[in-house]
Design a protein around this nucleic acid. Structure first.
Lengths: 231, 231
DNA sequence: ATCATTAGATGATATTTATCAGTTTTTAAA
DNA sequence: TTTAAAAACTGATAAATATCATCTAATGAT
């Protein structure tokens, strides 16, 4: 993790979340004063579940995973976030503790914005508040979908769900970035790693995906959707 | 479902969510004008996933279940809400559609409050906005916990989690209300009904709970917590 | 009071999935 | 360039769970 200061203020930042465009110059200046940018390398932990929480994060480049840890030390990755997304939308309204962990999947630049200053702007600018709430709502839909997938589906369906989620919501592309490994899909789907490998190999043989040396490409999305539906 | 008008305006309502206490008289009067109260009998559906959404709901008495339906028509009950809780905190900020269904578990009185008027108040009164966000955040913690439970735990752990959730978060009591049936626990835990019955009987034999004629009482909470932890 | 429906109960079976063990390949590090 | 550490791969096995079938008890409706 490296602290860098070579970035324009929020006012002129062109990696900022589009939400910020509804803020006034004055508001952007305020936020610019209370933020700092940090660089993380792949694998580095950005913050840990249980640690105290004083910032909301804005991702300026790269991909991070948001994951939960249970009492037995097992992980579950809930979602993957990237540019334009805010992290901690829920946490800043809770008990000043993080309720999940975040780690970098690639090289990542993150702006840490002071939560109190951010909240002040949030409650002052109605337009901004509404966009924030919309974006919070979108995040919740992902949670509901994850719950449905975990509750009743079996291996094939769970893995299909993850592939579709990654393609549609994370990359907007049929080609999945190469940090998507079987291990990551295992963490996201709740399916044991061995079985993820087996299933991906099977999908490869059936020409539903191409799965070669950590490259995953969706070849037959309709089929994946059927598998997801069937469960 | 019965439409009733025998209720005081929000101003004098003593079944309202405590959040409302930070509103001004003027704001309460506004909300009072755009709400209507409806009674539901046990089993009645209050709204369906996919239907259009123009209201936020405030439960004034009774218990409701919030559940998701998947493409194959299976149900999953995410949480149980009761007095003092708002339903639709996320939905009013989405695409005007409900993303889950709600049904009455007992006799229920619900206030339907017009979403647009509610949002106006929400963005005007900062204190109210903050309480709303806190309460939204609390709801999200429940979702995260559900996800962790579903992802890695097996039957015993999943069922223990539901019993603990009901006791701690819903009833604040070791005695679970008698609408909590094996079927409901099955819907909430993602475990097949037959296996829920088997597990509850086992817990009964081991004196962890008392499970007799639709009465469930937690006798040994520490043991349940161990089972939850072990998974 | 009777009938139909739902919940509880339980054993048997089949399916699904996790786990283990061992091999190969790839990637990263020294 | 060699070595170490992950990741991919695969078969075998064991464990967990869903499903099916059947029964009784309880509940609610007419």
């Amino acid at each position: 993790m490296t602290l860098t200061s070579d970035c324009k203020q929020c006012l002129a930042c062109n990696n900022r979340s589009p939400m910020f465009s509804v803020l006034t110059e004055q508001e952007l200046l305020v936020l610019g004063e209370v933020r700092y940018k940090v660089h993380f390398k792949p694998g580095e932990v950005i913050f840990k579940q249980g640690a105290s929480c004083h910032n909301i994060l804005s991702i300026r480049s790269g991909f991070v995973k948001i994951y939960l840890e249970d009492e037995s030390g097992r992980y579950f990755t809930v979602k993957i976030s990237s540019v334009d997304e805010l992290i901690g939308k829920t946490s800043i309204f809770l008990d000043k503790r993080h309720h999940y962990s975040v780690a970098a999947l690639t090289d990542v630049d993150v702006c840490f914005i002071d939560a109190e200053a951010f909240k002040k702007v949030l409650f002052t600018n109605k337009k901004f508040g509404e966009l924030y709430a919309n974006s919070w709502g979108e995040s919740n839909i992902i949670l509901w979908n994850r719950i449905l997938s975990l509750a009743h589906k079996q291996m094939n369906g769970k893995i299909a769900d993850i592939l579709l989620y990654l393609s549609e919501s994370v990359f907007q592309n049929l080609i999945l970035e190469n940090f998507v490994t079987s291990k990551l899909i295992s963490e996201m789907s709740g399916v044991a790693k061995d079985n993820v490998v087996r299933t991906l190999s099977k999908f490869h043989k059936e020409k539903i995906i191409r799965f070669l040396k950590d490259e995953i490409v969706i070849l037959n999305k309709e089929r994946l959707e059927e598998i997801s539906k069937k469960g």
